[in-house]
Amino acid sequence: MIERTATLGEAQRLTVINSFFNQHIAFREDLEVWGQADYWASPLESLGKGRGDCEDYAIAKYFSLIAAGAPAERLRLVYVRARLGGQSVAHMVLAYYALPEAEPLILDNLVPEVRPASQRPDLQPVFSFNADGLWRGVGAASAGGDPLARLSQWRDVIAKARAEGF
């Protein structure tokens, strides 16, 4: 799938990967899937289980896009406050910035298709991050042996994803 999308245009690649994970992973809480209150799974872990929660979608899409050739600096994982049935819930989506200052495209599991941010009034962004600083910080080669790698969920998942070949 990743090889296939590598040859596609940006917009199409986003759509394919977004749909792929939205279809192959069923939404479940971490507690149910992993027995932990919060667990960030790597893309293969999520696919293996076929289940995951919002950050698992975002993570899987993030690494898949990077593997398919999308520039890392255009991708950001975004903590958002989502209004779902009149309730505010903590949620995570993947944002794609075609240009640094431009309006991003949102890859989400609540709304299956890729939409620009302005068309997602239900989402209120709080904080975004990507692996840019961390990649540099962690060092490109030694995620496995790096003592920092498993200190945070994010670093942990980066390490796992790299170990899986992303």
Binding site: R76, P104, P125, G133, G137
Partner: peptide, 11 residues
């Protein structure tokens, strides 16, 4: 150490 700064959807 590096981290991303954003304002809403704007990077």
């Amino acid at each position: 150490g590096a981290a991303q700064v954003s304002d809403g959807w704007t990077a």
